[in-house]
Design a protein around this nucleic acid. Structure first.
Lengths: 156, 156
DNA sequence: GTTATATTGATAATGGTTATCATTAACATA
DNA sequence: TATGTTAATGATAACCATTATCAATATAAC
């Protein structure tokens, strides 16, 4: 199953279960997110959606994102910019799964996938142990490294 | 060197180097942070500072926190509550260093220190490799697990 | 087609954070 | 100790991402 297929099946679950509806605006937001690996903000998503569906308002984008986050399909990031960024979640063993390097000078976000298998193994083991010890059902993890990127080092 | 000693020496560096001043408000904010392990918000810090120093305003707390974050002494967290939380950074091999389990139902934050040595080893290795590959100077990391805590599982 | 209900979009309101600027405090120098 | 320079402060207003409201609309079930 590809990532999109997984997401769709997860969505269908929610629709069947809770009577939610898969409307055009929701499809549009999902479509944008699945094309985009750049952690877009609400406004960026809205603008892209707006190109194809000018009638869709920003509120709908906000609400759709909230739903997707609630359903575990999308992750909401906050890199201390005063606004949130969003990204489809690919399962930790999925091909698109990655972690982040964040430059706290220029705010650039680098996705990396190096050593991700090793990380996956480590994290899985850790999750199992933590889950048991703290009676905590873990649904996702974040690993981020903050620092200074190449060009910011140079320009200082 | 204890954590506070490390922080103070780091602060003195900055003061010496850049002509910053160690004022009463800054000492007060630092003192509150070093007593408090509960990831306080700006308002919470302000209220505690205010008890002893009623003349210190909220703006000063904001600015002091920004500085401490900039100097790498404090970390700013955002757990999607619409406001930031702050915490002194203890060096990864320090005694207070911990990571977080975050319940996305009740927003409770659990600090854990289990397996932290193992994590430290792993992260250190990873940082070295990533740093080299992406020419990125890593200054700190975040590891967080999101999920549902014990009491939220029960109350559903 | 009709009905019940989820969804939407426009607008206003909220609230954490930031900008502004005159005043004050801290430090270096004499 | 007095003085001058500059960092730091506090009150206020402004900002802007996000939320709340609510009437209008679209969707799915019957």
């Amino acid at each position: 199953m590809t990532n999109i297929e997984k997401i769709n099946s997860k969505l269908n679950e929610n629709f069947a279960e809770k009577g939610f509806r898969l409307t055009a605006p929701r499809k549009a937001v999902l479509s944008i997110l699945s094309q985009n690996m750049n952690h877009p903000t609400v406004e960026e998503i809205y603008l892209q959606v707006h190109e194809n569906y000018p009638s869709i308002g920003m509120m709908t984008v906000y609400r759709t994102l909230d739903l997707l986050v609630e359903w575990g399909v999308v992750h909401k990031f906050d890199f201390s910019e005063g606004k949130a960024r969003y990204e489809l979640i690919d399962h930790p063993d999925g091909i698109g799964h990655h972690h982040h390097l964040i430059c706290h000078n220029c705010k650039k976000i680098i996705n990396y996938t190096d050593f991700i298998d090793e990380e996956f193994k480590f994290i899985t083991k850790l999750e199992k142990q933590l889950s048991k010890k703290h009676k905590f059902q873990i649904t996702k993890h974040i690993i981020e490294f903050y620092g200074v990127c190449d060009s910011c080092v140079i320009n200082n």
